[in-house]
Write a protein that binds this DNA or RNA. Structure first.
Lengths: 118, 118
DNA sequence: TCCATATTTCCATTATTGTTGAAGTATTGA
DNA sequence: TCAATACTTCAACAATAATGGAAATATGGA
């Protein structure tokens, strides 16, 4: 089960947001920690800490590949988060002003929860 | 200037997310702190702390109204945040699967920044 | 003017997160 | 089997954020 605030908090950190964006950009095959570590100039322990966090909340996924590891963005989770935000945190009209959004019934309700009164 | 991670972090807290959702739901005229305080069962100081935070990052706005105060959601900011997320943190195809999104050129580029290499 | 009310600011305390070196684990190649 | 590599987990510390009582501020009504 996903918690909206948890996902938002995970992305609400400069370093983790940067990591996540690199992974999104990298596509489904993802990236190796050493690449990320170098790209962002982070010591491996710090990187590992943030990767673990993102992984724990479900925004990225870890694939073991023999000796190596690979992390990739979990697009569906981000998709859910966006659905949650457009459904719950927008005026409705205002949001997605560029896109032709139909009534929200077009899309199955998100499984992301926000405890205080759905 | 808005910072994506700052906005995400602001919403990445159960209480603030709940406050924000109440304000979104309340529409443009917003709500008084005492209503929020009661609705969420928060002591006024705690509420005030979170309102100040949301206000500082630009997600809500404060209107002074004689003796009272009123807080209202800043829809445009949320709109920008969603634009940033769909433009930078999605596979592109995956996100907004329900909505008929055209090419992102339809919309002026967001003014939200994510420091690490935009 | 004085009081009640609404809310904030101040402050101290507690709780949560972030950082990073050192040690540990797993895998592969020699 | 041993050494090298690629990470992670551990542990200690530093930094930041959250909580809520007490005091301060502002407004309007009696």
């Amino acid at each position: 089960m996903l918690l909206a605030a948890e996902l938002l908090a995970a992305l609400g950190h400069e370093t983790r947001l940067a990591i996540f964006r690199l992974l999104v950009e990298a596509g489904p095959q993802g990236r190796y920690p050493n690449e990320l570590s170098e790209a962002l100039g982070l010591p491996p322990t710090t990187l590992s800490f943030h990767l673990a966090h993102l992984n724990r909340v479900g925004l990225i996924r870890r694939h073991k590949e023999g000796r190596y590891l690979r992390y990739a963005a979990a697009y569906e989770t981000m998709d859910e988060l966006l659905a949650f935000l457009t459904q719950n945190c927008c005026g409705g009209v205002t949001c997605l002003s560029g896109a032709a959004t139909g009534p929200s019934e077009k899309r199955p309700p998100t499984t992301i929860l926000a405890p205080q009164g759905t």
